[in-house]
């Protein structure tokens, strides 16, 4: 399944946050969206998944969702968005209940996704008992449970410390190799972008426009070994962003 954004423009009150954003995410492709803070990355992601309506432009999907996909466009949130009153297994089954999947069938799916994210031992734990990294793994397990076609990831690793971030990045790479999901991965962390993205879309400061698109040919599974090359790439992306980030930093926020 493909996700195609066409000329997305959006305002909050009088401030333009996104201007004429167009790109497509192909099947099995991770597209990273980077940009200085406040450039509308997260707004774009909300629009992409239908949680917000753009002022103009449209988001389309092409192709059929994979067999059995319950929720083709599935989010991973920065703050995990786990229900604190439900156990790990309960948080996963939450998204199955509305599709009429209960009982043994639900238990089988929950056990399967928890096993795939190495969480089987934590099925009965409450979110407050888990570390940030484990919480995000639960959120990933929850997303896998609905068999998404495209994952919309909103700074999924930004709330984690750098060591946990490394671990989860390895997990995501391993997961991608097995499942070949497509993803729109929004981040302000360029290291994550060059490690995971098959393409990096660099946005300008507010109002966000596409500054540049950087293609990365290196296979994702080799990147952990070829860090020096990535380092060069990351610096290139940073050179593109630097001025924008500096200007964005000096702006006075007036967006609610």
């Amino acid at each position: 399944m493909q996700l195609i954004a066409r000329n997305i423009t959006h305002h909050y009150g009088g401030t333009a946050v996104l201007e004429d954003i167009s790109f497509a995410i192909g099947a099995g492709e991770i597209v990273c969206v980077v940009g200085p803070s406040g450039c509308g990355k997260s707004t774009f992601l909300r629009i992409a998944g239908g949680l917000e309506r753009p002022d103009s432009g449209e988001v389309m999907v092409a192709g059929a969702a994979p067999e059995g996909s319950l929720n083709p466009l599935t989010y991973i949130f920065q703050d995990f968005a786990l229900l604190p009153w439900r156990s790990v297994a309960g948080n996963v089954s939450l998204v199955l209940e509305d599709h009429g999947i209960r009982g043994a069938e639900a238990r089988a799916i929950v056990a399967d996704v928890l096993a795939r994210t190495n969480l089987s031992d934590f099925a009965r734990a409450l979110p407050r008992q888990l570390s940030g990294g484990m919480k995000q793994r639960v959120a990933i397990a929850r997303a896998l449970a609905v068999k998404p076609a495209i994952m919309l990831m909103d700074e999924p690793l930004s709330a984690l410390d750098s060591q946990t971030r490394e671990l989860l990045m390895d997990d995501l790479v391993a997961l991608w190799q097995r499942e070949r999901f497509s993803a729109c991965y929004v981040t302000h962390n360029l290291n994550e972008a060059v490690r995971l993205g098959s393409r990096i879309i660099v946005l300008s400061r507010r109002p966000g426009r596409i500054r540049e698109v950087v293609e990365i040919d290196m296979p994702i599974d080799q990147r952990a070994e070829r860090l020096t090359e990535l380092e060069r790439l990351q610096r290139r992306v940073w050179e593109i962003m630097r001025e924008e980030a500096r200007e964005a930093d000096r702006e006075i926020a007036d967006v609610p």
């Binding site: 949680l51 929720n71 968005a81 939450l94």
Partner: peptide, 29 residues
């Protein structure tokens, strides 16, 4: 109630009643 939890419910296609029952009421408890 954390707006992000409600947004999460919407993003997974939960029905209005499910969001009220499973997210809003326990969150307001």
């Amino acid at each position: 109630v954390d707006r992000n939890l409600i947004r999460m419910g919407q993003s997974f296609g939960l029905s209005w009643l499910s969001i009220v029952r499973k997210i809003i009421v326990p969150g307001a408890m």
